[in-house]
Amino acid sequence: MAEAEFSKTVTLAMTGASGAQYGLRLLQCLLAADVRVWLLLSDAAQVVINTETDCQLPGSGDDQAVEAFLADRFGARPGQLKLFGKRDWFSPVASGTGSPASMVICPASGGTLSAIACGASNNLIERAADVALKERRQLILVPREAPYSEIHLENMLKLTRMGAMVLPASPGFYQRPRTLEDLVDFVVARLLDQLGVEQGLLPRWGEAGSVGEAAQQ
């Protein structure tokens, strides 16, 4: 399908940091918002997904089976979700002439931050991020680590100065979360806002239903 049939295209990468729930929920919300998603999964990300969630991906390194599984699970339209392998150097995200305007790495491991910061480009996730930086396109990194070492902090500062946005998986509590899903949705809502995708997961500060609004009543 042509891009015009979708509202926009976003590259979503998931690496081996804890927090697979954030990436999967973001994928679900993007697809529901009629966004075409080019998905990149590291080997470690697939292990973490199977460990942390009830989303048990097909094994044996079958990218087509994983793509079909996720498309069915999250109700993707035909052509809306495409999973690219880690060595698919001919994929659109590997070149500035084909990559979309926005890329999110959620969650982003410390190793991934390091590789991107030094321009390693040893796999498609690192290359796609390198393309986003060199083309001055939107790159959002969602680290999920605690505590941060000096190495992590230096890499995040370096990437921020290059033009990337570091948006840690640090949910707020002013919306008075009651479930694990509420905490996940807080971070995903912030990501959707940054991507310019309409979301109803979290009222903005001062809107009806927010703590700020309730305090004025």
Rank of each mutant, 00 (worst) to 15 (best):
Y148D: 03
K86A: 13
T160I: 01
T9E: 14
Y148C: 01
S99E: 09
R144I: 13
G110T: 08
D63Y: 08
A65E: 02
I125P: 04
R127F: 05
G206K: 00
G79M: 00
D72I: 10
T112C: 06
E5G: 13
L41H: 00
P147L: 03
V93A: 07
I116W: 06
E207C: 09
V104G: 05
R137A: 07
M165A: 12
A128F: 00
E154K: 12
R25D: 13
L124D: 00
P171T: 09
A71C: 00
R36G: 06
S42Y: 00
L39N: 00
G196N: 05
A4R: 15
L157N: 04
A129K: 03
V47Y: 14
G19C: 08
L81P: 03
V35D: 09
A76P: 02
V10I: 14
E135N: 05
G206R: 03
E213F: 15
S121K: 06
S18D: 10
V104Q: 06
S121N: 01
R144N: 05
A164F: 00
E3H: 15
A169C: 12
H152C: 02
G85W: 01
S210V: 07
Q80C: 02
F90E: 14
E67Y: 05
L201F: 07
G196K: 05
R77S: 12
I116N: 03
Q199M: 11
H152R: 00
S42V: 10
L113W: 01
D62N: 09
